[in-house]
């Protein structure tokens, strides 16, 4: 185990591991030669590995993503970086129509491309600088979508995504960048064998989340423990293909399910988590109606006061759990 490593440093470790050990890996995207675009998570990679393998690009999300897909179909394992997920929407044709479908529709090989979309919320940035669109992309068969919640996963899921033979969307959240943890040295990981993790064992309620929402779940579980409530926390890690087994096994034990998601409510991840459990378990398995905490179905505001109302927080998770226990 190392000294504590932050989530952002863990991403940097993954890049250094990948670029250092795999000559077929390269990184491409906007801001890669600038120290501020992607924060500490890619600092000085261009100096260490050269600007031929750490490529800054014109303001062309669509062509950049397409070019990475093209390179991935020709022997490389590129990682495309979209410093803000909102701008990645401009690349959606290449992600949804091309990367996700080439293997199936051409009966050929998958583009082994990793697309990193960064969620960068809060700070009064507003509707086009704050989105978490994972549910959109998780809807698309052929596109694996990973959302690390911990520093170890920030590193390991990036390694696993890059070494995976399928296109993978890797989504990190800047609200997690200062989270730190000790971790073993990096190594190769097979994404296809990765499952959700139970981060905290409990008996009264199952809290299921991904990415930053896992932090809310863990904090809420701590608060609840002091109130005598034992919450189990599940970190999904991968939202497509979505594994429901870990959640169902937990709900069988706790009888209560609360899904927490930083995306919108309608057709969102939280609804999918609940549907998976409700479809698999008999009604008698539930001691309370499953519930979800999500963003309201509204674009992100800028005003500080509205932001406070907009984003889920620990208090809201605790309150929902208490209501479910009282049911």
């Amino acid at each position: 185990m190392s000294a504590p490593v932050s989530y952002a440093e863990a991403i940097l470790q993954a890049f250094r591991y990948l670029l250092g050990n795999y000559p077929e890996v390269f990184a491409i995207g906007q801001g890669l030669w600038s120290p501020w675009y992607v924060g500490a998570s890619m600092k000085d990679l261009d100096k260490e590995f050269g600007q031929a393998r750490v490529i800054d690009t014109p303001i062309s999300e669509l062509a950049t993503t397409g070019a990475a897909i093209g390179a991935s179909l020709n022997g490389y394992r590129p990682i495309v970086i979209h410093p803000r997920m909102d701008f990645m929407v401009l690349a959606t044709d290449q992600i949804v129509n091309q990367a996700a479908k080439w293997r199936h529709m051409l009966g050929g090989k998958s583009p082994a491309v990793t697309i990193r979309g960064i969620v960068n919320r809060g700070g009064e940035q507003g509707a086009q600088h704050s989105q978490a669109l994972h549910a959109w992309y998780a809807h698309v068969p052929g596109l694996r979508v990973v959302m690390p919640a911990t520093p170890e996963d920030a590193r390991d899921l990036l390694i696993a995504a890059t070494l995976c033979d399928d296109p993978v969307l890797y989504i990190d959240d800047r609200w997690l960048y200062d989270l730190s943890a000790e971790m073993p040295p990096p190594g190769p990981i097979d994404l296809t064998t990765q499952l959700p993790k139970v981060l905290r064992v409990g008996t009264d309620i199952t809290l299921v989340a991904a990415s930053y929402s896992v932090t809310l779940a863990r904090k809420a579980a701590e608060v609840l423990a002091k109130k005598g409530v034992s919450a189990e926390v599940i970190d999904l890690r991968i939202v497509n293909p979505l594994d429901h087994g870990t959640t169902c096994a937990s709900v069988k034990k706790t009888g209560r399910l609360l899904a927490i998601d930083g995306g919108w409510r309608t057709c969102g991840l939280a609804g999918e988590i609940i549907a998976g459990a409700v479809e698999s378990l008999p009604p008698s398995a539930f001691r309370a109606r499953p519930r979800r905490i999500t963003l309201p179905d509204a674009p992100a505001p800028t005003s500080k006061l509205l932001e406070k109302v907009y984003y889920p927080n620990t208090e809201r998770v605790v309150a929902a759990v208490e209501e479910m226990l009282a049911e």
């Binding site: 062509a63 093209g70 390179a71 179909l73 290449q94 129509n97």
Partner: peptide, 18 residues
């Protein structure tokens, strides 16, 4: 999808250059 293989070919060209 009209135009979709154009950036993909650019990437194939990038790979060829590498």
């Amino acid at each position: 999808i009209v135009g979709a293989t154009i950036p993909i070919a650019v990437g194939a060209g990038l790979a060829a250059k590498m």
